[in-house]
Design a protein around this nucleic acid. Structure first.
Lengths: 332, 332
DNA sequence: TTGAAAGCGGTACCAG
DNA sequence: CTGGTACCGCTTTCAA
């Protein structure tokens, strides 16, 4: 049986209350008493029971990390999420908080996340992959659950957002292509029910508008296969394109493969720029010129935000935008 | 305030005990009573508080998922783990159990995991990345915590292991190279404090021994950079090598890059076979011939094992070995 | 079959 | 500053 406050109290000849005060570092204990309790604590190898503590204090020291998806193998299919999760795990590591991992289906029962919150007395939630129009966001707001959204702006006292400068990144990418002399530049866009999809499209448009260049856009689904198909559609419709900005590295790899299939050389016949800068961007040939998404840092930032909120009761900054950066390699 | 059993009991005009029985599906409640309670449950939107339940029943319905590592960005640097975690998340999804994510440093305080277990009343643990000689394993055994080890055999009533047939995979890879006519075959081995490192080395040795071929081994650290350096060392020491079996895809990519730097064509001048079959294996040029590690399935299997143990109180099979498979592409 | 009461292991509150 | 006691929400035990 585990050793409890009562065991410690008996050994140190004090009340359970005093033990609790010592354990929680409340500075209202006389030094002599404190030492006696500390000794008993060590001798018995006391470990506070977080469950019991959570029950009473209504704060279980747990952060929920929620993926919204129906897909199996989701972490494999959305590789940037690995980096986000890695950042969350690292940032939570030295905190008092534990991470509870959960994936829920979009539009499942909108209260699924809130239920999780209630049932496990979760203190705050980090929500990833929230498409626009996701009902969970409203649900969480309505239930007064503090949460941080990755890659989607949000309004509300108890909500914050961590995202990257997607528009700026896209802008830089397309400006770079223009600067390299391209005048017919296509876009393989991600799905537009994602905030980053919308923003990357906006950046592309802005860069073209600055020079009065024509648009050539296909929409795809973020996947490698999607990128492959999309390049075909794009070139069939606009054969004069000499460069394509692709809204994700995974799609860019697909597009690169499609270009190769068509006998096009990258970058000589077709310049390609991706977005994300995942590990494999340096593995493909030619190495992919892409926009670096600070996914790991987004995870770290999201965790610090929610942790800070749990301490201070508020978010100092409701919308954190991390910079992106064009990484020039050889594909454009 | 959340609605409790007492609220439900009051509304349904029964005792809290009866409500508890209904919620937990115990078949000792009269049908009429049950219906009344069910109605009250629905009307009030009752959600059982898992914390309180765990406190009383000493079973918090939580599985700990533990990474042993000091490295930051660990999920990024050990990409196969993403697949394992994805499998764990998917398998746990429809269970009653939640996943608690935690990373601990090797040789930190050996009782870190046990403490986590006690403090959060965790029911079972899935341990990944346990090097050989890891003290956590003993610690968990000594404390009677049920656990599943990924990729490391283990003894004990309350322990099980899920791993892949690393030796068989290596054997198949090297036999394939021999069959293709290679007689001077090198190995870039992973670190030997990993079970899979030892096994892949053993498979390589066995295949060579079958034909009386000479060995040529360098040890590396699983990383891309490590693979790059290792290929250099290998070729400097054994210039006649025409093929190299590389114990991980990440190292294989590094080796492929090193070969390219040396002006060697793959596979004409140097055949390369990897191990893992991660996503990027099909992205490099030439596409990597490799051994498929069923990492996702290992995560699923580990979860089912621990879940089964929590139900039955035992592991039906203490050492689950999943098959590996040679995937022939173009690098060999 | 149902109900009343006693905890699980902490923390909050109040009295001394 | 310290101790006693109620109580968080649920399950378990035992009696009716």
């Amino acid at each position: 049986m585990a050793v409890t406050v009562r065991d410690v109290a008996a050994r140190a000849q004090v009340s359970v209350q005093t033990v609790s005060n010592v354990v929680n570092g409340r500075p209202i204990v006389a030094e002599a008493t404190r030492q006696r309790v500390l000794k008993a604590l060590a001798e018995l190898g006391y470990q506070p029971n977080a469950i019991a503590r959570g029950l009473r204090s209504n704060c279980a020291h747990t952060i929920g990390v929620v993926f919204i998806t129906t897909e199996r193998r989701y972490l494999v299919r959305a590789p940037y999420l690995n980096e986000v999760v890695s950042g969350i795990a690292d940032a939570a590591r030295d905190s008092e908080y534990e991470l509870l991992l959960q994936s829920v289906a979009p539009h499942e029962h909108p209260s699924a996340v809130t239920q999780l919150f209630r049932r496990r007395q979760i203190d705050g939630v980090i929500l990833t992959s929230a498409e626009l129009g996701e009902p969970y966001v409203e649900e969480l707001t309505a239930n007064d659950v503090p949460f941080v959204l990755i890659d989607r702006p949000v309004a509300g006292e108890r909500a914050a957002c961590v995202r990257a400068d997607n528009r700026g990144g896209a802008l830089a990418a397309v400006r770079y292509l223009i600067q390299r002399g391209h005048t017919h530049i296509g876009l393989i866009s991600g799905a537009l029910n994602w905030h980053s999809g919308v923003e990357r499209l906006a950046g592309y448009r802005q860069a073209l508008a600055e020079r009065g260049l024509p648009e050539a856009v296909t929409h795809s689904d973020w996947s490698r296969e999607g990128g492959h198909c999309a390049l075909g559609e794009l070139l069939d419709q606009w054969p004069k394109l000499t460069a394509v900005f692709v809204a994700s590295d995974l799609m860019a790899v697909g597009a690169m493969e499609a270009a190769c299939t068509r006998g096009l050389r990258v970058p000589e016949d077709l310049a390609l720029v991706g977005f994300d800068d995942l590990t494999f961007a340096t593995m493909v040939r030619p190495p992919l010129t892409t926009v670096r998404l600070p996914a790991y840092d987004m995870g770290v930032e999201a965790t610090q935000l929610i942790l800070g909120h749990l301490t201070d009761g508020r978010f100092p900054q409701p919308d954190v935008v991390l910079p992106t950066e064009l990484v020039v390699r050889e594909s454009a």
